[in-house]
Design a protein around this nucleic acid. Structure first.
Lengths: 203, 203
DNA sequence: TCTACTTTTGACCACTTGGTTAAATCATAT
DNA sequence: ATATGATTTAACCAAGTGGTCAAAAGTAGA
């Protein structure tokens, strides 16, 4: 090996990630990945034995980019309101820096959901922790009763959706890129406000 | 022609819709569509000249299934709160009956967003109507100021997300199909409650 | 320089893909 | 029945697909 973990390998990963996230597994072509990487197609198979293997490598890399931080927040000892605020901020910020990841993950949901769920749990996601926290905060009179499933679904969907539906949103609302960026920035506040107001117990 | 618009044509449409929604355009195979329809592959090309043409036919059919009702509600003279309630109910109900449509549309967003936006506007979607309504209800002291972009994005994402992320949701929360159905049913109430509480002006 | 090795390449292969075609089948009016 | 037109089929094709392989080019130690 020349450098750390071979330069070519990283170049390939970068190219593959770009092509896979844009086109999905089925739409991606090994030739295109090779072209983007500026190498021969056979070299792809030298480093990663098959298209599936290459995809899997990218997939794991993406999972490790996207989820650990968010899950860590959800599993931490913060209050529910703090978690909602932090996840909204971190998630949107991370997706702003990797706008294709949302689409990539969703492509994978419809292609191989089992593996995705498996990897999720491996990263330390445990649904019960949130469930017990909600139960406690309900009992403490802080929030109105709500199922954890709904709260988490609400939180994730509000954060992720704008990245998946970006072209439609921009097209329908007539936003340009700058306006869209501002829109995302606003959501860091609006999402927590929406969710917290809806579950906060009135005195 | 035998029946109304030929029986075979409708069989093909049904098969194609199933395959396209499950696999996406790139993942779909003309042979598989033919198999599902129980006919020869060449017959596909007899009725629809190419894969693209067939897809386009399905695409238009899907658009006409999904959006007109929801858009009609949003453009109607109902109050904002009524619209939020009706859209939540209608949208979730329609997706329950056509669970693949969300994924289908989403696939298409990443494949050909321009056409999607174009068709949207053709169905009568006009963003400004909602914008002016919000302005008026803000001035009337009914709701807190909010951008129409956020409200609509919130509404749509909360309705659609569970259908796109279904396998993950079920896997993480350990829901079976019956529990998932109940979950969807609950959302018809939870979504309006969440959105309305967040924007309703306190007296 | 020679040797042993890893990395990179161009040419190639088997197989799948969407799409065509000519012939067969079916329906129907005469 | 039979001629005419629409419908359906099996066999086929060219272009692409992921993947292989043997040879070339680079690298580094002796």
């Amino acid at each position: 090996m020349t450098g750390i973990d071979s330069n070519t390998e990283q170049i390939i990963m970068k190219a593959a990630r770009r092509v896979f996230t844009n086109k999905g597994f089925d739409g991606a072509r090994m030739q295109e990945i090779a072209d983007v990487a500026g190498i021969n197609k056979a070299l792809l198979h030298y480093y990663f034995r098959s298209k599936d293997k290459l995809f899997e490598a990218i997939f794991k890399e993406v999972l490790n980019t996207v989820f650990p931080k968010i899950i860590a927040v959800l599993m931490s000892p913060l209050t529910l309101f703090e978690k909602i605020e932090k996840v909204s901020f971190n998630y949107i910020e991370m997706l702003k820096q990797n706008p294709d990841l949302a689409i990539f993950v969703f492509h994978e949901i419809s292609r191989n959901p089992e593996r995705l769920v498996g990897n999720f749990k491996n990263v330390g996601a445990d649904f019960k922790i949130i469930q017990t926290q909600i139960t406690k905060e309900v009992e403490a009179g802080i929030i109105v009763p709500i199922k954890a499933e709904h709260l988490i679904a609400n939180l994730i969907s509000l954060c992720v959706f704008p990245f998946i539906a970006r072209p439609v949103l921009m097209g329908m609302a007539g936003m340009d890129q700058a306006e869209y960026d501002r829109f995302l920035e606003e959501r860091k506040q609006i999402i927590p406000h929406t969710l917290i107001t809806a579950i906060k117990k009135q005195k």
